[in-house]
Write a protein that binds this DNA or RNA. Structure first.
Length: 152
DNA sequence: GCCAACGTTGGC
DNA sequence: GCCAACGTTGGC
């Protein structure tokens, strides 16, 4: 089993949306970066654990945990002309982008703030806190996962 | 295959 | 809203 961190803008999809969805999977679509896609497509497996990170908002940080309940499949939004994620270069027999399903595990009792994460020497390798990082799906090592969980 | 121009991300 | 940093595009 592997560990990951997914960024999301809470205005789009927040940890509270997972809370409300309870046992209903949330379709994680709209990833449009090749490196992130490759992680989704090649390495995300059912049962993997995912930190849900809130970006571009007032309270930036890790808000909770979800797990992968369906591995990669073609992202439906790439075929949807009404979606902002529509990709004219994608076709049903040659999809470019993939989605996974995530299911709620738990919300953290309090948000782990970005500045807190940045303050820990053991997390300097985490892509999230590297300057200029733009990955929206990134691997988290077991050690990093445990370090972060220990903050709660 | 290079690389300039452009668009996007995301913290501040 | 700013802007640094990065990824993507497309002409050559």
């Amino acid at each position: 089993m592997n560990y990951w961190l997914f960024k999301t803008e809470p205005a789009e999809c927040s940890m509270d949306d997972f809370v409300r969805a309870a046992s209903t999977p949330i379709v994680w679509e709209g990833v449009r970066n090749y490196q992130a896609r490759n992680f989704l497509r090649d390495q995300l497996a059912v049962g993997d654990q995912v930190f849900i990170y809130h970006s571009s908002c007032k309270d930036i940080g890790i808000a909770g945990i979800a797990q992968v309940t369906r591995a990669a499949y073609p992202d439906p939004s790439q075929f949807d002309v009404t979606s902002s994620y529509f990709d004219p270069k994608a076709s049903a027999d040659n999809p470019r982008w993939v989605a996974v399903d995530l299911t709620f595990v738990r919300k953290l009792p309090q948000l782990i703030r970005l500045d807190k994460l940045k303050s820990l020497a053991t997390l300097i390798e985490l892509p999230l806190i590297r300057k200029g990082n733009r990955l929206s799906v990134m691997p988290v090592t077991r050690a990093e996962w445990q370090t972060i969980l220990a903050l709660t």
